[in-house]
Design a protein around this nucleic acid. Sequence first.
DNA 1: AAAAGATTGTGAATAATTTCACTTGACGCA
DNA 2: TGCGTCAAGTGAAATTATTCACAATCTTTT
Lengths: 210, 210
Amino acid sequence: MHKEKIPKLTIPRLSLYYRALLESRESAFISSEELSKLTQFSAAQVRKDLTYFGEFGTPGKGYRIVELKEVILKILGTGRQRNIALIGAGNLGLALLAYRGFAVQGFRIVAAFDSNLSKIGKTFEGVLIRGMNELPQVVRNKNIEIAIIAVPANVAQEAVNKVIKSGITAILNFAPIRPKAPKGEEILNIDLSIELERLSYFLKRKSKKV
Amino acid sequence: MHKEKIPKLTIPRLSLYYRALLESRESAFISSEELSKLTQFSAAQVRKDLTYFGEFGTPGKGYRIVELKEVILKILGTGRQRNIALIGAGNLGLALLAYRGFAVQGFRIVAAFDSNLSKIGKTFEGVLIRGMNELPQVVRNKNIEIAIIAVPANVAQEAVNKVIKSGITAILNFAPIRPKAPKGEEILNIDLSIELERLSYFLKRKSKKV
DNA sequence: AAAAGATTGTGAATAATTTCACTTGACGCA
DNA sequence: TGCGTCAAGTGAAATTATTCACAATCTTTT
């Protein structure tokens, strides 16, 4: 059994390998070299990443595509549906609600919440907007495992607190703050300003190299 | 002069230091220890990050907040306005257009583009939606340095190609693909599916630890 | 003016991650 | 069956990033 520690970045790479596999319908097998070409990661990286979880390849041939896809699904736990609660039904929240792009992967926003009374009770994309007070029971009833935070910065920590109290442990946060949370919670931050500032830094450096 | 190579993650940390500084109005000075408390990064990390760019602190006191803020702005190149082109005026695109949150940092979407004829000519949030053919001249005229890609996956590479051809070198990509681009381009990917899959992996692991 | 106290800046040590390079196993063909 | 080839798996090396720990230095106090 493999006991090595798995690098953080291995997981998103697995997602990308999976995507590449979806586009590889020509052959039954794929080599780490081919996966490397498709994903821009090195072939050694591909092999290393995969062997953290087992030995799936056959020397001389490569990886059986059908099998590898199943394996990655299993590792990521995306074989089944995962229900999501959307917190915040503003512009961004509603855009995420309308974005059905990740439904294919099994993720589904099954409930939405807002504290704005004028929104509560309305339905968008077939999803009813509820008051935050309903969060705990809806999480329980609808078997919600993930929350997406799409509220303004000034109420984001409060929203995160309520989400955690409702029993959710996996959070995707779009608010431009780093929420504080107890151990055992997994919070991923998607922070527009920070990404733009990274780009700005890149532009700055570039303009200096005359 | 410092010549050490700067770790990739130093830059987003600088952004977070800056944010913390905005909230530190009590005193004129702040120590790496205090910044550590505010940002969750270690004090040594704070000092290391800052010294890549110079020596800004005074032993025994810490960093002068006003000065440090200026320094970080200068490093990141966020002291001045950066103009952005939005590619794709669908749900997500329009939500980004409406999100004025990063305007304060000097980032501004000054033009929007779509290939859907029914959208071209309309105005959202004071920004006219134009056809993609207008991209090159608008980039030139409006001094646009950054593009945000918010188009469906199947046309994203094409959009990126056009953006690059128009002379833009910094791209924030929301489409669930890894665009191919020549060297010299900086592309940051914000990929919802991948983040959700990371959360799924986390949930999977968690459920195993019984 | 000296001593005490605080905190920076930084080499060195450690940790994490990726790449290298080689061994081994599987397949296909003569 | 045996040989050649291909590609996985993997320790070791290299690279990258973070943490440690302490000398240097500035401030404050007495």
